[in-house]
């Protein structure tokens, strides 16, 4: 583990200890929340990494490039969007998938669209939202967020290219 990460971990442990000693209720609340998320992660991660491993050996770089890379155009965007809206769990498991897509030759804009759709435009989430906040709120947010995600994707691709960041 890198030094910086070790520091963060140490600080986290200290924060928990401090809370548990001096703010018992808040500390327990934090610990319970962390436990819940830990359970969820432990459950999801083996499945996701298995899919990633299979993807790595079976899907050739050329096909990722062709369908999600430069020149994949509107179809590539659409595929990335569809891929992201599938009901597939919390955002943090999308990061390693995004990394793999980039490594396999997908363009940055499409990967950002994928992440954005995963985070903000997931179908089950939309249904929940419509139930609690109403159809017009949900549809307006959905359309505006879709436009925003596209804009963020293109902006990021431009900026990262300009700054010569490679993946």
């Amino acid at each position: 583990m890198k030094k910086g990460n070790l520091m963060i971990m140490l600080l986290l442990v200290l924060a928990y200890l401090f809370l548990l000693l001096f703010q018992r209720e808040t500390g327990m609340q934090a610990l319970t929340a962390a436990g819940g998320y830990l359970k969820e992660m432990i459950l999801v991660i083996p499945g996701i990494t298995l899919l990633m491993g299979l993807f790595e050996v079976w899907i050739p770089k050329e096909s990722t490039q062709k369908y999600l890379g430069e020149g994949s155009g509107l179809k590539g965007f659409f595929l990335a969007f569809l891929f992201g809206t599938a009901p597939t769990g919390p955002l943090y498991i999308a990061f390693p998938i995004a990394r793999q897509l980039l490594a396999k030759g997908a363009r940055v804009a499409n990967v950002v669209v994928f992440l954005g759709a995963w985070a903000a435009l997931k179908i089950p989430q939309i249904l929940m939202e419509a139930k609690f906040l109403g159809m017009s709120f949900t549809l307006t947010r959905f359309s505006l967020t879709l436009l925003a995600v596209l804009a963020i994707g293109y902006l990021m691709e431009r900026i990262l290219k300009y700054r010569k960041v490679t993946f």
Binding site: L12, A15, G27, A30, L31, A33, A34, L38, M41
Partner: peptide, 10 residues
Amino acid sequence: VVGLVGLILG
């Protein structure tokens, strides 16, 4: 992430 999430939710 789990550590941070817990702290912030707490």
